[in-house]
């Protein structure tokens, strides 16, 4: 367990230094872990949640709040806490109050593949509702897989403006999904 934990923390530290590959890897592994936990947890209490939506909300929160992880601490408890928060949110939105016990999150190593590979889901719908510049940039990066440099060329923007639009778009997505403010 500690070896695995070190591996995650090392990836996240590298990501914090700007290592794109490390960030991609750790987010992918986190997604798999959260997916397995949310699926089991939702099934266990007969709750209807879109598992992939919760996974994506968790990833958004992890990305935007990554400053709240301390580099000398293990990553997994922090990820579990965020996933739990997002699952509770999703269940609450379904109109039922749920207390999520911490145990199912405690020792989960299962990694599960996503059900959905195409488009659809809450995040996709919300991207459509973003202000036009943010929408174009988020789509170009997320759907067409372009680099910020390429997006800048395509949309006749500076790279800095692309970064700003992307970041604002991501923040807005996270806010709108959470239904807070």
């Amino acid at each position: 367990m500690s070896g695995d934990e070190d591996h995650w923390a090392a990836l996240m530290r590298a990501a914090n230094r700007g290592d794109a590959a490390a960030y991609r890897t750790v987010l992918g592994e986190i997604a798999a872990l959260v997916r397995g936990v949310v699926r089991r947890e939702a099934a266990a209490r007969g709750a209807v949640v879109d598992v992939e939506d919760v996974v994506q909300e968790t990833l958004l929160a992890i990305h935007l709040k990554r400053g709240t992880w301390r580099e000398d601490q293990p990553l997994r408890p922090w990820v579990r806490a965020i996933a739990r928060n997002k699952l509770v949110d999703a269940m609450r939105r379904r109109g039922r109050r749920h207390e999520v016990p911490i145990e199912p999150f405690a020792e989960t190593l299962a990694t599960e593949p996503p059900v959905r590979h195409g488009l659809g889901g809450a995040v996709e719908r919300l991207i459509g509702a973003l202000p036009s510049r943010q929408r174009e940039v988020v789509r170009a990066v997320a759907l067409d897989g372009l680099e910020t440099r390429e997006v800048a060329a395509r949309l006749a923007m500076t790279e800095g403006a692309v970064r700003v639009a992307l970041h604002r778009g991501i923040r807005r997505l996270a806010r709108v999904i959470g239904g807070t403010s």
């Binding site: 960030y23 991609r24 994506q56 996503p114 990066v141 997320a142 759907l143």
Partner: peptide, 10 residues
Amino acid sequence: MSTERLIEAL
């Protein structure tokens, strides 16, 4: 949106 795409954006 697929989660892989979201990860790319992040």
